[in-house]
Simulated scan of single mutants.
Amino acid sequence: MTDAATMRASEEAAPGAAVGFLYPGYSAEDDYPRLESMLSAGVRLPLVHTDIGEDAHRVDALLEMGSAGRLAAGVEELKALGAQAVVWACTSASFVFGWEGAHAQVRELSRTAGLPASSTSFAFARAIRAVGADRVAIAATYPEDVAGHFMAFLKAAGTEVVAMRGSGIITAAEVGTWERDEVLELARAGDHPEAQAVLLPDTALHTAAHLGELEAELGKPVLTANQVTVWEGLRLLDRAVLRPDLGTLFTAEAGSRAPIPG
């Protein structure tokens, strides 16, 4: 971003609380303005796209997608938009680094930005505790091997995974074309009788418009990637927003539970 463009962005950025999101490529980024409008809490959710390299749910491609250099490239633009905290809005390109590696990724992002930082993977780990779940089911768009890395990440966070379903989708671009029926079917297929919550971990999946329907269909908390990412950003700003239409995670009961330590 040029100096002149940065100055214009700073001038145009509205005052008040703002969580900035680094979002990989283009797929379901429109969930964020939708969630911002649903929050009605005076909090802005500016988003900057990162260069993903190869669009592939494959471990080597995901490690490059989440590399420090690719994330750092979007930080100044987010700060120019007034971000007071930053979240790497990607699950797969954070959990593939493992529990310790994902911590290192977030620490480096925070150091580069000079702001509190987190990622979607840690958002899931904290959100699971917030809704009171000990046992979860994973309904993933990813191939099975990539979904297995998410399961390992959650186990490291102290969560029992009772079922895991991968869908074998390679690209975020394809996931971004999924509509209501595909999202509901994914959740139903991934549910398990012993699961206290069902997780849909891909930020490329449009879910903001379906949160209430997902929980009504399954009769339990459903945590989706863009939903938990926004919740995590609000947590970084110490902002609790009660919006039951955004799912159990945005209720007073969830807000009263202590999240896992960083």
Rank of each mutant, 00 (worst) to 15 (best):
A189C: 10
H210K: 04
R111L: 11
T251Q: 05
A5E: 09
P221K: 05
H192W: 02
G158A: 12
R126Y: 00
S256K: 13
M1S: 11
D191P: 04
S167M: 05
E215K: 13
A89L: 03
N226D: 13
S167R: 14
Q84Y: 10
T112G: 02
A187Y: 12
A123N: 01
V162E: 07
R126H: 01
E185M: 09
H210V: 11
A68G: 11
A216H: 08
L45R: 03
N226H: 04
A156Y: 02
L199T: 02
G82D: 08
A163T: 05
F122K: 09
T159E: 15
E179H: 04
T229R: 06
L246T: 08
H57E: 12
T2L: 07
T2I: 01
L109D: 00
G69D: 09
E76H: 13
A173Q: 09
L246E: 14
E160H: 02
A117H: 06
G168N: 03
L236K: 06
T224M: 03
L63V: 14
E182T: 14
Y32G: 05
L62E: 04
R180W: 15
D31F: 08
F153M: 09
L184I: 12
R111P: 02
H103Q: 12
A208R: 03
A254G: 04
G16W: 05
R180I: 07
K155A: 14
L234E: 01
A9H: 12
R180V: 04
A13Y: 15
V96M: 10
R135T: 12
A13G: 07
T120M: 10
A252R: 08
H210Q: 13
S92R: 05
G233T: 02
L22F: 00
A172G: 15
G158Y: 07
A72W: 09
A9G: 03
L78D: 06
F150P: 06
K220Y: 14
A173M: 02
G98V: 04
L199N: 01
G176K: 03
L35P: 11
A258E: 15
M151Y: 03
A80N: 10
Y32W: 06
H57R: 05
E217P: 01
R58S: 11
A18G: 08
H192P: 03
A173E: 14
R34T: 14
G148T: 13
P46N: 05
D191C: 04
A85P: 08
A208N: 08
Y142C: 00
E29N: 14
F250K: 02
G114D: 13
A85L: 12
A113C: 06
A41F: 07
E64N: 14
D31M: 07
R188L: 10
T207R: 09
A113F: 06
R135D: 07
A80Q: 09
A204L: 13
I128S: 06
A157G: 01
P244L: 04
E36I: 10
G20S: 10
W88R: 15
E100D: 11
A157E: 09
L109F: 00
G219Y: 07
E36K: 15
G190Y: 03
P143L: 00
R44D: 03
E29C: 10
P201A: 00
